[in-house]
């Protein structure tokens, strides 16, 4: 039996790319549709990371070349490391800046933290001003 390896490679690669594009599209629609900042944020980080990763892997499977594979592994590594850190930084800033939460959000266990933040706020602002003067 004769299997056309090129063809199999193209099929696998197409499947990866289409799945990635689907997740990317879902993330974009979610960015427009979801009700508040935090739900959008948590849908975007996952959707964009997975979608982009799958597109890049698909192209890597198609090229099947060592040099390009190394570059693609580097892209994957950087996104997996950096995207959750960026999401975390943005969410913390949002909490600090009091971006409103969706009305259905349950904040029972978070009350504690919010109250503390309220008390500490003056302190934090003093600190920030000191830092900005020093720089």
């Amino acid at each position: 039996m004769d299997i056309d390896l090129e063809f199999v490679k193209e099929i696998i690669s197409s499947a990866f790319i289409l799945a990635g594009v689907f997740f990317m599209l879902v993330a974009s629609i979610g960015l427009l549709r979801l009700p508040d900042f935090y739900t959008r944020m948590s849908a975007i980080t996952k959707g964009a990371t997975l979608g982009m990763g799958m597109i890049v892997i698909g192209i890597g499977v198609y090229f099947n070349d060592t040099e390009i594979m190394l570059k693609i592994l580097a892209i994957l590594f950087f996104t997996l490391i950096t995207s959750p850190v960026a999401a975390h930084a943005i969410t913390r800033t949002a909490i600090y800046k009091k971006v409103p939460l969706w009305k259905k959000t349950d904040l029972k266990e978070f009350q504690n933290y919010l109250q503390k933040r309220e008390l500490d706020k003056d302190e934090v602002e003093d600190q920030l001003q000191k830092n900005s003067k020093r720089l």
Partner: peptide, 19 residues
């Protein structure tokens, strides 16, 4: 509505452009 929403959208745009 807020600057943070724009930063999130910017993040998604970057991922998109890489693809």
């Amino acid at each position: 509505p807020s600057l943070l929403d724009r930063i999130t959208a910017f993040d998604l745009i970057v991922a998109n452009v890489i693809g």
